[in-house]
């Protein structure tokens, strides 16, 4: 009996997990770009990314646990390692990612922030104050270790769906790639949103725009073959694509995801960045446009997960 089993909690989890992966990835890249001995604008990207990265995925994991039929049995996921199950692999990836991103977040705290954090600990946790160490010098090591894990988390959210053979809407490797680049793009967008609020962020936004454009172009050139290849595939896949070509998700996919969530922000960012690269002009950014573009990307990323989770479950072999 066909039912929709994964709903909004899973959509939110997939979005938040991808968002954290993107934040960590961009932060780690920026960590490699700046030189420790020199003050660099990339430091602000790396710091903001590192400070934000752990929280969305932790909320997402909470939603994931809450979605379980027996949430109080969630610990059983950690009693098994099943390499043939994408969910089991994902569980362990999330454990490592949460740990690394939390330690990385701590490593990027300033001395003042650290002191305030430990001073605010309640009395029963006062014993933790002896762990007030400065681990600034771990930042690059953590970025190095966390980078492949963050890519893994970004890919895994797509593999979770793509590995299901019985749902023709999902069963292609393109879904994993699509989710990865969408995740990286939403990470860039969150950092653009965070930095656009501050003044003198031109250099940071330039880097983020460039990275985001790469991710969105790749995302677009994955969506395109996904549709074309699907239309040329077996009947079950062609039928499943009708969900977004003439079916209930058509407007959501073409207008709101592809139009407003992918192509519009891509055009806006290209409009901002291309003159700087081609004509060597100074980068003048609009804070409103930057924030608006970022919100469009985040909305598009969320819609992508929404469409794929629901349409995928509605698709079936005939």
């Amino acid at each position: 009996m066909k039912t929709i089993e994964w709903g909004f909690l899973i959509v939110n989890y997939l979005f938040l997990g991808g968002l954290s992966a993107g934040l960590f990835f961009v932060s780690a890249l920026a960590t490699f770009l700046y030189k420790i001995e020199e003050p660099s604008p990339y430091t602000r990207i790396a710091r903001l990314g590192a400070l934000l990265a752990p929280w969305p995925v932790m909320i997402g994991c909470g939603l994931l646990i809450f979605d379980l039929g027996r949430w109080y049995h969630f610990y059983k996921l950690f009693l098994h390692v099943r390499l043939v199950s994408p969910m089991s692999i994902g569980t362990w990836l999330l454990v490592f990612f949460n740990l690394v991103s939390l330690v990385n977040c701590y490593a990027w705290l300033t001395e003042d922030q650290r002191n305030k954090l430990f001073a605010s600990l309640p009395r029963p946790l006062a014993f933790l104050r002896k762990f007030n160490y400065d681990i600034d010098h771990w930042r690059r090591h953590l970025a190095f270790v966390g980078l492949p894990i963050s890519v893994g988390v970004g890919i895994y959210t797509g593999v979770l769906l793509g590995a299901v053979q019985s749902r023709p809407f999902w069963n292609t490797n393109l879904v994993a790639q699509l989710f990865l680049f969408s995740a990286l793009s939403t990470g860039c967008a969150t950092l653009i949103l965070g930095l656009a609020r501050q003044e003198h962020s031109a250099q940071e936004l330039r880097l983020l725009y460039g990275l985001d454009i790469c991710c969105m172009v790749l995302e677009f050139f994955i969506v395109l073959p996904y549709i074309i290849h699907g239309q040329l595939s077996v009947q079950a896949v062609q039928d499943s694509l009708k969900l977004i070509v003439g079916g209930p998700f058509t407007i959501l996919f073409w207008v709101f995801f592809l139009g407003f969530g992918l192509l519009m922000p891509l055009v806006i960012e290209l409009r901002e960045l291309v003159p700087v690269i081609v004509s060597n002009r100074e980068f003048h950014y609009s804070r409103t446009i930057a924030a608006g573009t970022a919100l469009l990307i985040l909305g598009g990323g969320f819609l992508l997960r929404y469409i794929f989770v629901f349409a995928g479950q509605m698709s079936a072999m005939q």
Binding site: E5, W6, L68, G69, R70, Q165, A316, M317
Partner: peptide, 14 residues
């Protein structure tokens, strides 16, 4: 069983 329902989604026969 933790009730993740992944098996339900994977079953081609529902």
């Amino acid at each position: 069983c933790v009730g993740c329902r992944y098996c339900m989604i994977a079953c081609p026969y529902d």
